[in-house]
Amino acid sequence: MDRDGAAFARLALPHLDAAYNLARWLLRDPVAAEDVVQDAMLRALTYFASFRGANPRAWLLQIVRNAAHDRLAAAARAREVPLVMHDDEDETAVNEPADPADDPETALSRRQDRAALAAALAALPVELRECLVLRELEEMSYRDIAEVTGVPVGTVMSRLWRARRALLCRGEAQA
């Protein structure tokens, strides 16, 4: 067990941020995300001895993703779907570079654009959202996304396209 634990720490723990990020975008709630990731990671630790694959990240994210979907389904049954985002609204402002050419009004409108896009991403249907998050934020290949989400590569492609088209159309409607 000690050796498995060490291997887990070496091969799986580096993907903890990816696991948490996925759960956070799927559940849209930091408390629920931490809870689900903790359970999923402990389960992964238990089963790690039997893991024989070449891709620990996809394996781990698949466990986390399924746990997050279970939680969403349970919440839907209990009619407790978290509708309120607990996210700090100002979080996206951290990366905002100063633009000397901007007056305060333009800077504000750009921050609002960014918040609106984050909200639009959070509002996508969950099966589209998970594909886009895995692709854009985790930079995973179609094949790995297919493994994590349990659908064929062709479905990943069409889901990514639907997600992006929805966000693009939103941008056009605004412009």
């Binding site: 990020n21 979080e91 996206t92 951290v94 990366n95 918040a115 934020l137």
Partner: peptide
């Protein structure tokens, strides 16, 4: 999207 969707740690 990468700018707006922060990667939560």
């Amino acid at each position: 999207v990468r700018l707006a969707g922060p990667r939560h740690a």
